[in-house]
């Protein structure tokens, strides 16, 4: 990877699978992003925003103990871009979140990076 599109970006990973989370973290850090939080449960968004801000969030839909849609809605309200990374189909998305950026598992590293880069490019 010669380009570093995520350079300096502050990214949160919400993923219940330890290995996937570990993998994603490595992937993003290799792309020069700053992974500020890796968590299996919905984090306190306000605290993270207050502590330096968030550029984007990578979200697994199924968090094991529940779905992450409410968190995605919260992000949407807060205008924080997010990318779904999930084993489910896009059809699982509820109506108000349909059309959200989405990558299905298993995704290779390049797609995750490109997905987030796209999201951030659109944002600016």
């Amino acid at each position: 990877m010669t380009e570093r599109p995520l350079s300096g970006c502050r990214i949160v990973i919400l993923e219940d699978d330890y290995y996937q989370a570990h993998d994603s973290k490595n992937t993003l850090e290799d792309a020069d992003a700053t992974v500020i939080k890796v968590t299996a449960s919905v984090p306190d968004l306000e605290a993270l925003v207050a502590d330096g801000g968030i550029d984007a969030v990578l979200i697994d839909i199924n968090l094991g103990r529940g779905l992450s849609f409410d968190f995605a809605r919260e992000l949407k309200r807060s205008r924080i871009p997010f990318l779904f990374l999930t084993g489910y189909d896009a059809g699982m998305l509820p109506e108000d979140l349909a059309g959200s950026a989405y990558i299905s598992k298993p995704a290779d590293r390049a797609r995750i990076v490109a997905g987030l880069a796209n999201l951030l490019a659109r944002q600016t």
């Binding site: 084993g87 699982m92 598992k105």
Partner: peptide
């Protein structure tokens, strides 16, 4: 069906992670 899909995809993701680790 959705769950099965989810599990299979997760499993593949995990296998990949396990292999890498």
């Amino acid at each position: 069906v959705a769950e099965l899909q989810h599990r299979v995809r997760n499993l593949i993701g995990m296998v990949r992670s396990v292999a890498r680790l």
